[in-house]
Nucleic acid binder design. Structure first.
Lengths: 177, 177
DNA sequence: GGATCGATATATCGGCGCTATATATGAGGA
DNA sequence: TCCTCATATATAGCGCCGATATATCGATCC
């Protein structure tokens, strides 16, 4: 599923600028399970406009560049529907933490402990974020939020119960590797 | 963390060919939380050889191309240690399933149900995979395996308990979007 | 017995998308 | 006063995935 499709999805929630779409990936409803950045969003919106899947109207502003507000066309809406009907790619997960942990037996104990502490703090923050329901959310958004909450909660519980497995394996001294 | 670093990590478990390293990402110990493919592994090994971080010896074979077996040098081992001491990037997670589910209220119920069924089946397979401990695993590998198991188990439980949230929201008719 | 398929093994090309950067300004905190 | 953050668009560079090319052996299938 290409960035163009993700942008169509973003616009299905209402008209938006490239800047606003980017925020949906950074902080918004997509942030926990999708990724996209300016470098791909702006070119995608241009391509979508060329193909007639979205339209663009410009709004003058003072001090800032003019706002380019994009809207889904009927053709774009159909294209999104098609994409959601295709075979989906399986989830992708990338964790430098787990990669690093594979070498716990070669790392100083302090390092491993700090790694786990940092991770626990980050995950507790995420669980906090995902605890707040929003009245305006679609059923899907609510489901995704609860899903994230459940997974992060399980992750935290696992880490707290099993951190000793890697901490005990780590080396006592402070030396590097 | 670049592919070169991941290759150093792979070679820290023993000498290997590019083909074997690829398998570590495809089926092996890295497969659940890392990604890399031929298109990046072979160039990475060339670069690592040029920089003296790995060495390469060639083994003749009949019928197949000669095996190029790579080994970590002392310099490579130090470089890996350094990388594991740096600030790690946070986990990245990409899910077309959750993206699609955001639009559950626009999709036919059959589609949503089939999506959940497919996902459950895939996840049960993963849990199965991750149930088998291996005597030869490092403590880190064992930890990562259990971690995956815990997270997938939580995921399955959540899906089974909450699938109705999106299935009830989906539209009754069979029409597309 | 012939055909097809998957595993073994290396390598490159095209294109997609992230990271960083450029540009410009107003608001708010230090 | 200065710096950082938010608003807003856009591109260049580069890293990496996916597809493809090449070659052979063993296994399965019909």
């Amino acid at each position: 599923m290409h960035v163009t499709t993700l942008c169509l999805g973003a616009l299905a929630f209402g008209d938006a600028t490239g800047y606003e779409i980017n925020k949906m990936f950074e902080d918004g409803p997509f942030s926990h399970f999708l990724d996209a950045s300016y470098g791909s969003i702006y070119p995608a919106l241009t391509r979508l406009t060329d193909e007639g899947l979205v339209t663009c109207r410009t709004e003058q502003q003072e001090g800032r560049p003019d706002k380019k507000i994009y809207s889904l066309t009927e053709k774009g809406r159909r294209q999104l529907g098609d994409a959601l009907g295709q075979q989906l790619a399986p989830d992708k997960f990338r964790s430098e933490f787990l990669f690093t942990v594979l070498f716990a037996h070669l790392l100083p104990r302090d390092r491993v402990r700090s790694l786990v502490d940092q991770r626990l703090a980050a995950m507790k923050g995420k669980v906090e974020d995902l605890s707040q329901a929003d009245e305006e959310d679609t059923p899907g958004m609510d489901f995704a939020r609860r899903y994230g909450h459940a997974v992060f909660a399980a992750s935290i519980e696992f880490l707290e119960r099993n951190r000793h497995l890697i901490e005990d394996a780590a080396i006592e001294e402070k030396a590097h590797a």
